[in-house]
Design a protein around this nucleic acid. Structure first.
Lengths: 79, 79
DNA sequence: TGCCAATGTTAAACAAACTTAACATTGAGG
DNA sequence: CCTCAATGTTAAGTTTGTTTAACATTGGCA
């Protein structure tokens, strides 16, 4: 399961947005509340499209909402 | 098939990067050349993760490489 | 206390991204 | 002309994102 390389702050943004609920956000974005929950809990990362839409709801650039962790594999250059 | 809302300039960036080939980029990103081809031709948009990795190869912010088209559905807000 | 909205969680089904493998086309160079 | 590298394309298969539906937990409030 390798821990996903992408973090986000949608929960925080959601709360800063007039106590918007997961369902509200899902609604605004066009996905279900379960999808929002999964993203907040980092069970998986969204598609690029959904990511863009979430960012737009909050009126933020995508990279503010989603951060790519360099994934600096501790000493394991392989492949 | 609704025309995808996301455009990109990976082909241009690739060429500006020492004539990097699709296979080279796929390699650097960790996907196949077919995947790169599909993205360039907009047959589908990449996952957020792949998008981030491509952007990083070119040392560009994600939003420079991928642009979200407002998709202003002519008068049909429904659902 | 009892209700209700918000969130957590999960299984089954479906859709979209991605792989593998194969074959076709184009263009540069020998 | 022939070859080879780069790209196009497609079918079949796997994986991952997303939905639907169901039930559980928490906390606020009448």
């Amino acid at each position: 399961m390798a821990t996903l390389p992408i973090t986000n702050c949608v929960r925080e943004l959601r709360q800063q947005h007039g106590d918007m609920t997961q369902a509200d956000l899902g609604d605004a974005v066009g996905v279900t509340r379960q999808t929002i929950a999964a993203i907040e809990q980092r069970r998986y990362s969204p598609s690029l499209e959904v990511a863009f839409r979430i960012a737009r709801v909050f009126n933020q650039p995508l990279e503010v909402v989603f951060q790519f962790e360099s994934d600096a594999e501790t000493a394991g250059s392989h492949n």
